[in-house]
Design a protein around this nucleic acid. Structure first.
Lengths: 204, 204
DNA sequence: GTCTATATCATGATAGAC
DNA sequence: GTCTATCATGATATAGAC
């Protein structure tokens, strides 16, 4: 029966995502995934031949989910400062809902960087197009002149890093006060937007 | 003989650092550490009773090395903008020389956050003192008013994240052009300083 | 498709000779 | 202190019954 099959496969993917995302490829155990899916190890290998393949299914799904967020915004016709604000909003709300993504991607990217190229080209993300748009805006005097690559890295850093470093914020700054930490993340988008716009003001 | 002992211990620590830092606690293999140190597994257990203990020795050393960098600068009597520039310089030069640190710390912090508290309190890092100094400067109108925690997070994000995300820069932006990537990192400190100072200008 | 039982292998750790 | 040989465990993966 197809519904039965799909159901189990869904449960496996869901369980695998949870385990891989918190433990990483190396730390994850097939037993734990099986337990969390309410089945046994043999079935995992029946649906996905190996741990490697199961992991790739999850990793690909997450990357597919997290990366192309920007692409749509970039290609719009809004003024550049508006686009920047939209990007910051999009990233932050994505990460508030999926705060585990940055740590997971960074961990696996540093473990085995080989798969990146395929995924990036697969989703056709062309960083060059971004540089171009930013340089136009600089030529027109809309924003201050600077290396567009540094600008993008600055923005993405401020959006993503606080989530990757969540344990540091949690323990060092917020002393495990979960509400305060959540409130901080909720403020992030507005703060970063204002900070970036301020930094980009052209002074006569 | 003591020199002999010290020599081997040094070699083990050096090898363990390399392996742990690239593979992480879960991915590292005692065999690989032994090979890289030019000895055999049994000796690892002779010097450090378990993989766990060996890891803690390395992790502690790295944290000790990376964290307190700021503390000294904070407590000086320079104007706040100068301190900010010094912090950015200190972080960036540290990370250019040890680019693996951010990914390693983030990975292990997310794997097992429990050890942080001890280390932080051990080195007496008091974030509250930082907020205070920044708020004074804001009261005096030296820099624009904003939540000091967000400000610090912004700065640290821009300093640290580009190193944690090195594979992304390397593949997506710089297409494996190592010289271009190195040049980019070399520019980082100046770019970030200018960006932050710009963002903090008080407009009448 | 799902299970139990088992093969196979890798790894951390120890025993014991030198 | 350093080695070789070995143990014990736990993990991925498969065989085969239902």
């Amino acid at each position: 029966m197809e519904t039965k099959r799909d159901n189990t496969e869904e449960k496996i993917l869901e369980a695998a995502k949870n385990v891989f995302v918190t433990k990483g490829m190396d730390g994850a155990r097939m037993q734990e995934i099986a337990d969390e899916a309410g089945i046994n190890k043999a079935l995992l290998h029946y649906y996905f031949r190996s741990k490697e393949r199961l992991f790739e299914a999850i990793f690909g799904e997450i990357i597919k989910f997290a990366f192309p967020k920007i692409t749509g915004i970039i290609s719009s016709d809004e003024p550049v400062t508006t686009k920047i604000e939209q990007i910051i909003d999009a990233y932050t709300s994505l990460l508030i809902n999926h705060p585990f993504i940055p740590a997971f991607i960074l961990k696996e990217l540093n473990r085995d960087p080989s798969g990146i190229f395929k995924l990036i080209t697969k989703y056709g993300f062309k960083p060059e197009s971004v540089w171009g748009k930013l340089e136009e805006a600089m030529d027109k005097g809309e924003i201050v002149r600077m290396d567009p690559r540094h600008l993008i890295i600055n923005i993405v850093s401020m959006c993503v890093f606080p989530f990757a470093a969540r344990p540091i914020l949690n323990y060092v700054i917020f002393k495990e006060n979960k509400e305060a930490l959540a409130a901080f993340y909720a403020e992030r988008a507005d703060v970063v937007k204002q900070f970036v716009i301020n930094a980009l003001v052209v002074r006569k």
